[in-house]
Design a protein around this nucleic acid. Structure first.
Length: 430
DNA sequence: TCTGGGGTCCTGCTACGA
DNA sequence: TCTGTCGTAGCAGGACCC
């Protein structure tokens, strides 16, 4: 307030949230490195029989290929497409470059995935102008510095910023990709009309099951959902979820942009080319997954008390078995000790399609209680540190649990990003 | 017809101690 | 000593996200 009169803030400063979404990110990175593929239908992921599509170019999308679609289906729909296996490390590298650029506008950057982030730019207006101006400048710089395009939503809160960036995206059409607006601004006044016109499936948290439940109540749009009494929604969807979605339908979303959130679980899982039926083979796979998970725990400087084993059978029936131990674990041997009885307790005659290990109830090394093993002897901790150092210097496969060494074949280890979107043809099974 | 891998969050149930 | 209640932790499954 100055001179007894309220100053009206400029419209852009009442739109603190940006949602930035890279366009067809994995595919765009591939095209950056292989420009001769531009204009062709390109699909990342799903090169094996059991894979799924991780990303599709707009040319491939015009044939009906979308993310998460089974590879076999994608191949039928678009036989001319170039299928690429995906390079997680390369995407992570480009992502880091893009996120650094985001952080040059504001420290309040919340990554949702490699290709998507929320930015709170409420403190950046003096330096960079209002939010729509920041959005436009940011898009231009991303293109200039990386050669990639992105779409940006600008809105008063996360919910609508995300939906706005979606509305700004390019679209696939049979005639080829149709450019989007690139930036979409949704002001406080526009918010409810914009929101209520969208299909209810657009809301974060409404998947196929929830959408089907809502359809039984004749809810097709966000507006339909908003019009229902909250009690009815709670009865249909459960208390927490029902209230949350009803709030979202009225654009009530107070979630702040949180720059860093600590991981709550770390794990690995893998789908096999053919189902495993032998316990000894699965035990070896379990050792490999535990070893990889433990390495990542140590890299993150955390250890966990709850160890979970996930088994997906040939029929796609999926079970989880978990155990919580007194002391937090971060070594492969300790994880195997906890996980093995969980696996051995299950009948695998049906055939196991996927095996996974994950660790939760994480604590940092500084706060965790010393285990008896730690207190009794430091030799195992030293050996583990030495293993990490050898792998740092000579690669992940340079030193592995003896169980994983096969005469004449060496050893196969797992690192993050391996077989990210399904098993490769010809990889090991048994 | 076929359904990945990395996660988060919620719900319902059971066990257990105060 | 027995019984009921309540809060919490652990466990399993499911829905959802990118």
């Amino acid at each position: 307030v100055t001179g007894g009169q309220a100053t009206v803030p400029p419209a852009g400063s009442r739109l603190p949230i940006l949602h930035v979404d890279m366009d067809a990110f994995f595919v765009s990175v591939e095209l950056l490195d292989a420009p001769e593929l531009r204009g062709r239908p390109v699909v990342v992921g799903g090169s094996g029989d059991r894979g799924v599509v991780a990303a599709a170019s707009y040319e491939a999308r015009a044939s009906g290929v979308f993310s998460a679609m089974p590879a076999a289906q994608a191949r039928r729909l678009c036989p001319d497409a170039v299928f690429l296996p995906g390079r997680y490390a390369r995407y992570a590298e480009v992502s880091e470059q893009v996120f650094d650029l985001f952080r040059s506008y504001t420290p309040l950057v919340e990554g949702i995935s490699l290709d998507e982030a929320f930015l709170d730019v409420s403190g950046a207006h003096r330096l960079f102008g209002d939010s729509p101006a920041i959005a436009a400048a940011l898009r231009a710089r991303v293109l200039d510095e990386t050669g990639l395009t992105c779409s940006v939503g600008v809105a008063p809160r996360k919910l609508t910023a995300k939906l706005a960036s979606e509305a700004a995206k390019p679209r696939a059409s049979p005639a080829g990709p149709v450019l989007g607006s690139g930036v979409r601004v949704v002001t406080e006044e526009d918010e409810l009309p914009f929101l209520h016109a969208l299909p209810v499936r657009a809301l974060w948290g409404v998947g196929p099951v929830t959408a089907a439940r809502l359809a039984r109540m004749a809810v097709e749009t966000v507006g339909d959902l908003a019009a229902l009494p909250v009690e009815n929604v709670e009865r249909a969807l459960g208390r927490a979820n029902g209230r949350h979605l009803h709030d979202l339908a009225w654009a009530r979303d107070a979630r702040p942009v949180v720059p860093v959130t600590a991981a709550k679980s770390i794990g690995h899982e893998e789908t096999y080319v053919r189902d495993h039926v032998r316990h000894d083979t699965l035990e070896r796979e379990l050792v490999r997954l535990c070893d990889a998970t433990a390495t990542r725990l140590r890299t993150a400087g955390v250890a966990g008390r709850t160890v979970q084993v996930k088994i997906r059978f040939g029929s796609f029936r999926t079970i989880t078995r978990s155990v919580t131990v007194a002391e937090a674990l971060d070594t492969g041997t300790a994880l195997v000790r906890a996980a093995r009885p969980l696996l051995l307790g299950e009948d695998v005659d049906e055939g196991v399609r996927l095996l996974g290990v994950s660790v939760s109830s994480l604590s940092t090394a500084a706060t965790r209680q010393l285990s008896l093993e730690d207190q009794g002897s430091s030799s195992w901790a030293e050996a583990t540190r030495a293993v990490d150092e050898v792998r740092d210097r000579y690669g992940t496969s340079s030193i592995v649990p003896a169980t994983l060494v096969e005469p004449g074949r060496g050893a196969r280890t797992k690192v993050r990003g391996d077989q990210q979107w399904g098993p490769e043809q010809g990889s090991r099974s048994g």
